[in-house]
Structures are given as structure tokens and as C-alpha cells.
Design a protein around this nucleic acid. Structure first.
Lengths: 374, 374
DNA sequence: ACTCAAGATTTGAACGATCAAACTTTTGAA
DNA sequence: TTCAAAAGTTTGATCGTTCAAATCTTGAGT
């Protein structure tokens, strides 16, 4: 046979009609077991699979979800979207849903792409990432009744309550708080925070988590709290410089939590370079680099995020879009609690030994055994 | 209007027939300019786009290429596939081709997924990554006449000459050679190599590049060549330990090229920890982490790789599959020459100063200005 | 004016599936 | 045994597009 087998071929082989084959595939319960078996055999024999486009045309749904692939220049945590994508693809597959990629240079271009994909009936719904304050995309999507879910909560107050805006997000507050409390439980009594300038809602959320932990467990004064609170762009160098300055101005700091692994890595380098390799540091994102270097970090449990996103769009199971208006209040969003991953840090250098090659040798070699203490 | 506009709606609005609208879209040249304009106006006014599934059903092609998204545990260079995907999506879009994702735990599962996607006429062709010696996937694909292209050359000798196996790859030999020659030109006279155990074709290819450069430009003896040639797993710690040992046993080493950024980062840490922060090191992959830390690296120019892959599948332009048998000999694969990206390394620490906080302060602060010399 | 080809447009059929309704067979109670 | 209801199966129509062939229009040559 030259072409792929069609439902008609299967029907002929099983001596039944098209529709019966269709029923075996879609509503097996209504087919007599005997007949069903015969059809199933024919299907297997011909290695038949329904033609996806034909089915989509008839069903008026594409069973496809699109997501934009960022240019992804955000450094160390880059693989984040990567891991999310993987989880999303895997779970979508289980529901018979396909994931389609697209790119766009900016929000306006993204809206245009969405418009195109949508108008071509190519895609049923969209997953948006990296939402920001006053995001024009979500506004447009709601306006045009396009089904979507965002990874990242809406930071505008009015959007937050928009019942048409489904979202999943990671509870940065809880994650950062857990990280800080872990350090405090391990004996730290003066824990600093390295975060981003107060513009991104995400950054503020994580900052508040640290602050909550410190206020709850330690008696840090308000002025001290301000001094322990760093804000830098998400760059290794910026973080390093800021942390070096902090550590030099405040010798008593005995713990740091950071809003990203990039910042945490900068902090590790800073600590090492001022002879404080022992300073416990916790990052956020659980990036591959962090893993490689033994950085403790808050993991975003992207499996749960992906699962949550699909559930909001499609309900508990299956691949049919759920009507948003039908969703009850608390099923319109999901806040995932991340979890802390503790690692034995890889020593960047043997800071407490003399800096001659021979002296550092053994110290470096022992990294796997020695448990760091504060 | 409740449903999306169809070609019929446009036809009515422009007072022409279905087919004329179709012609305006697909073969505008045969439509009288006057009529064409009228139709174009109607299309714009209704924001019409052809229904993708209907078109695919009729045309018997899906205009979709699928690619597997790895679990991606390969650490630091993880974002590699990410960047490739981005380039691929962008260039495919320009050709009217969509990129579909799928996942699979192992080669057998991947074959099964491919079979399914293929039988459902969901996908026209596949892009495979991370090919390896004796890869069962390519064998199966050739066997079953499934159009595909691999990112990564076939390492088996017989596959190499299989005209049905299209591939694109990065010339690791040329890249590593260029890196080593750069170091030599900058004054290095004893350049080592950190690579992977001799199993992966990719690793050997890169190793040979280093070897060629050294043999060509330096008078390194064969025994020395062997001593300068490290083989470790692609892990930070392994690389670090091996390089520490190397640097301690051989004080004259004044340059290192590495088969990956992961290894290079390990080497940087090793160098810093034995007081040799000045040691020039070049990695491979130009990963985001490498960028963040100022690591010089060989960039894979994934734009070109993606472009090459699409060209092999689809020809110079357009979205139609090119018949493999029609391709001339040298258009069946493409070897992309990577290019070296030189960066000013971020100092991991002030190794040549005393290790007290106050002493290191200024040295660290100056990282942006000082040009490292060898 | 007449013919014929080239140019421009329209009509009917097909792509492969599902839905809705019609038809046939089985089942169970009177 | 009879008949209605339930269960099982088939037929015709449809989704929105493009292909192939048919029809209509225009224009040049005689």
C-alpha cells in the first residue's frame, strides 16, 4: 500500500463500516465485544492510526497547545524554560495533546503570532511564560477570548481577580522563607538576601519570604534588615561585587539566600574571594549549573507547574478544553510550593589554607567528604 | 460571527468563488490584478487565515517537523538544545513550517513515538539530536523511509555513506584547532587538552583538533602529547580534580583547551585553586554560564546548524520536502565551522594576593579593567 | 464578423475523519 | 408469539481546503 491506511481500509478488513471502526476508537463501550475484537485486530494488522488533520478538521479542535520559546538570554537559569517544556510536553502527550513552538522578539510580535496560529485553527490554547506587570499579552488574550494559562501570576491588581485569567505560579515567598529558615535552623543568626531591584513581582515575592523568616525567627532590627537586603541585576558580576562589599562591611553575616542561582553563584564567588568559602548560601531555581557546583537551591518543581497548567486548561484528565466560566473560584489558579534541595557545596578554592599550590592540593581533593559547618 | 471565517466567507465578501480566493493565496500570478486586490481586501477585512488542518488534509502534508526534547541532564551545556530549538523554530516559521515537540525516555521509545506521529500524518519529517555510534533510530528511519535529518554526523562508517542519511554537524576538529592555535598565537607554548573518554565520536573529533594544532605549531614530543591529554567524564568535579593534578605535575603548562564548557569551568576552578588564575582556558559550546563567567569558548553557530538542517530537508526555500534521492552527493550533509568567542575572564578569586578579606578586596574589584597576560 | 487559443473564473470531487439520523438486530416482558 | 425498547450497526452529510476539469471571457489573427 502506498498511502497510509485509512479508517475505510480498516473497515473493509474487519468487514464493518467506517463508523464502527470510529466507535471502537472513540467509544468502545457501545460496540459489541466480538465486533470490537475483530476491528482491533484489523487496526493492529494495518498499523492504523487516525489521520490527525482529518480528525481535527471534523472535531473543530486542534488538540495542540502553543508556547513561545524565548530567546533565552537570561544566563544561568536558562534551562528553566527547558525543563518546564519537557514536563509540559510529557504530560500533554499523556492527554493526547501536542506542544507547538513559536518565537517572537517582543510582546507585540508574540500577540501577532498568537493571532496567526489562532486564526489558522492551528492551536487550541496558549501557555505564556514570564508574565510581567501590565502585560499586554494577557489583556489581548482575554479581550479576544483566546484560551490561555500563564506560568507566572498576574501582577496587576485588577488582572489578579480576572476570572478569565488562569495562572500557575511558584510560591516564591514560601520557597525563600523555607530556605532562610533552613539556614537559621542550621545555626545562622544573621541571614542576608540578594535579590533584584524592586520592579519584578517575582523578586519582591521572594524578598518578602526571606523577610518573613528573619522577622519570625531572628531579632534583626529594621535598620539591619535594610542593610542585609541587597538589590542587583541578575548578573554574576553584579552579585559578586555587591556581596563582597556586604561581607566586608558586616563580618557577622553567616548566611545568604538569593533570588536566583545566578546571584547565588556570584555570592559564592564573592564569599570565596574574601575567605569565607564556608558561608552557607542558598539559591533559587535549582539550575544545572547550581547542581554541578553543589549549590543548595529552591527547586521549582516544574512537573507540578506543568501539570497544573494543563489541569487548568483541560480539567483533571483528557484533552478537551474546559470552559473557563465553568471553573470555580479556586480552580482558576494554582500556587505551587517549591522545595528546598540541599547540597554539599563544591569548594571553589581552599580559602583557609595558604595559597600555594601544594598546600591547596589536599584541601581541594577532599571536597566530597568534609561536611561544612558554620 | 461565531466560527472562524472560511474561504467561502471571503469568497462571498469579494464576490468571487472559493477557488479564486485559494488562487490569490497560493498562485496569485494567475489571478487578474483587479480581482486579486478585491480578494485581498476581503481577506484583510475578515482577518481570514486558511484552516491549517483542512489544508493539511487536502495537501497530504502536515508542514510540521518534530523534534525530541531531551530530559536534558547534561549540566552546564544544557541550553545548547534550547538555543538550537530557538533557531530551528524561527527559521522553520519563515518557511511556514511548525515545530512539534515530543519526549521519549530512550531510543526505543523514541522510535515508537516517531512511528505514532508518522502514522497519524502529524509530522512530515524529524530532526534527531545526539546521534551516537550504532544509533538504532537512524537505521529504523532509513528502513521505514521516514524523512529526517540528524544534528550530529553518523559515526558508523557505513552510515556515513548512506545517501538516505542527511546530517548537519559542527566541525569540532576545526573549532578546537582554532582555539588551540589562538592560544599559541597569544604566546602559549605548552597547551593541554581536557576531553572525554574515547567513546564519543564528538570528543575524539575535538581532541584531534587540539592535537593537529599542537603538532602543527609546537614541537611537543609524543610522550608530552600523551601527558597533556586528559580524559574525564563531563563533570565539573572530575575536570577540576584532573586539572589540579595536571597542573601540579607539570608547571610549564600555559594554556588549556577543553571539549566542553563544563570541563573548562572545572579547569578554571582548578587553576584558581592552585594559584594559576592567569592560565588561559578555552571551552566549547559557548554556554550561558560560560558567558556569565567570561569564559572564552567555541560557539556552535546554531543558527547555521538549524538553517542547514532545514535546507537539507526542504531545499533552499519553501516548505516542501525535497526528495532525498534527488539530492546531489555534497548536498546530503553539512559541516558547520564554529567560531571562537574570546572573553575577558571573570576572576574567580584574587589568587596571587594574600587570602585575607581586606587584601583581596581591591583585586576583585578590578576585574573589569585588568587585561590578563600570559 | 468568425475562430481559436490563452486567460480568468467557477464547479464538482476528494482528502479522512466524526456526527446525526436511519436502519437492523437483539432482548425482555406481556 | 408479539411487539416495543434497547443495543448494535450503517448511511449520508459535513468540516475547509485544494485539485482537476469545465465553463466563461477576452483578444488577436484572418
Amino acid at each position: 500500500m502506498d498511502r497510509l491506511p485509512t479508517i475505510e481500509d480498516v473497515a473493509r478488513a474487519a468487514r464493518v463500516s467506517r463508523q464502527t471502526v470510529s466507535n471502537v476508537l472513540n467509544t468502545p463501550a457501545i460496540v459489541k465485544p466480538e465486533t470490537r475484537k475483530r476491528v482491533e485486530v484489523a487496526i493492529r494488522k494495518l498499523a492504523y492510526r487516525p489521520h490527525a488533520s482529518a480528525r481535527r478538521l471534523r472535531m473543530r479542535k486542534s488538540s495542540t497547545i502553543a508556547i513561545r520559546l524565548d530567546p533565552m538570554t537570561n544566563g544561568i537559569s536558562g534551562a528553566l524554560l527547558d525543563r518546564f517544556l519537557h514536563a509540559l510536553t510529557e504530560q500533554a502527550d499523556a492527554r493526547g495533546i501536542r506542544i507547538l513552538l513559536f518565537t517572537a522578539a517582543d510582546p507585540a510580535a508574540e500577540i501577532e503570532q498568537i493571532r496567526k496560529l489562532r486564526a489558522g485553527a492551528d492551536v487550541d490554547a496558549f501557555v505564556l511564560t514570564a508574565t510581567f506587570h501590565g502585560d499586554p499579552r494577557t489583556e489581548w488574550l482575554v479581550e479576544n477570548d483566546v484560551p490561555f494559562v500563564t506560568f507566572g501570576r498576574p501582577w496587576g491588581a485588577n488582572d489578579m481577580n480576572n476570572p478569565k485569567h488562569l495562572w500557575v505560579d511558584v510560591d516564591g515567598f514560601a520557597g525563600m522563607r523555607e530556605a532562610a529558615i533552613h539556614l537559621i535552623d542550621q545555626g545562622s543568626s544573621r541571614v542576608g538576601f540578594v535579590g533584584w531591584p524592586s520592579l519584578s513581582g517575582t523578586g519582591d515575592d521572594r524578598r518578602r519570604g526571606w523577610q518573613a523568616a528573619v522577622e519570625e525567627r531572628l531579632s534583626t532590627s529594621d535598620t539591619d534588615l535594610a542593610a542585609l537586603n541587597l538589590s542587583v541585576e541578575d548578573r554574576l558580576e553584579d552579585a559578586r561585587d555587591a556581596v563582597v562589599a556586604l561581607l566586608e562591611s558586616d563580618e557577622k553575616i553567616d548566611g545568604l539566600v538569593c533570588a536566583s542561582d545566578t546571584l547565588a553563584l556570584g555570592a559564592m564567588i564573592a564569599a570565596a574571594s574574601v575567605g569565607r568559602s564556608d558561608l552557607p548560601i542558598i539559591g533559587f531555581d535549582n539550575s544545572p549549573v547550581g547542581q554541578a557546583i553543589g549549590l543548595s537551591s529552591v527547586d521549582q518543581t516544574l512537573d507540578e507547574v506543568a501539570g497544573g497548567a494543563l489541569e487548568l486548561l483541560l480539567g483533571q484528565t483528557g484533552g478537551d478544553l474546559v470552559h473557563r466560566d465553568a471553573a470555580a473560584g479556586d480552580t482558576r489558579h494554582r500556587l505551587i510550593t517549591p522545595h528546598l534541595v540541599i547540597r554539599q557545596p563544591l569548594r571553589l578554592l581552599a580559602s583557609d589554607a595558604a595559597s600555594t599550590p601544594t598546600a591547596t592540593k589536599s584541601a581541594v581533593g577532599n571536597h566530597k567528604n568534609g561536611k561544612e559547618t558554620q
